[in-house]
Amino acid sequence: MNIFRLVADLMHLGSILILLLKMFTSRSCAGISFKTQALYLIVFVTRYLDLFTHFVSVYNTFMKIFFISSAGYILYMMRVPLKDTYNKHLDAFRWEFLLGGAGVLALVFTHKYTVIETLWTYSIFLEMMAILPQLLQLQRTGEAETITTHYLFALGAYRALYIVNWIYRYETEHHVDAISTMAGIVQTALYCDFFYVYFTRVLKGKRFKLP
């Protein structure tokens, strides 16, 4: 564990807490893509199957359980108590392509053809693209609540910091994983436009609005 990864994990955890805070305070899930949230649940479940086979640390176990359970809880919130505030028509991304595409990539690039290893690779590629339905929704509406942009910023910053962590690990441990690194770079690149508007508008106290 290094400082970059610790801060990244805390940003990831923080992003989820911000999203829950948005839902609780506004009693609304407007502006949030259900598809992206559902993809994250699939990502966490397929990646953390090793909860049952491989103990890393109390920290690691706690975070895995938190990510899976909070993702499930967010879906429940969007489907049950906040159902009326969800706009299906804005959440129009064809996510079948992401589910299928990640499957093809996992079968091609997995390190080993075992169930756990292939599902781990699947989760990496699915996470790489999971934000796309959310970004499409943002593009369609052209604007977002400030709290939603803080959520997205924390989520993007988490993967960006993981890149710094991988560089650090390469330097100190000579450890490198091509799959997570390449996917992580693509995932972070998807946030570029968002980061630009976030830095130039939201952090200056203005509303998030696409040009």
């Binding site: 491989h54 690691n60 690990r169 450890h175 994983d177």
Partner: peptide, 10 residues
Amino acid sequence: EEEDAVKDEL
């Protein structure tokens, strides 16, 4: 080892 090192990440 190589693979365990990857899997310690979240």
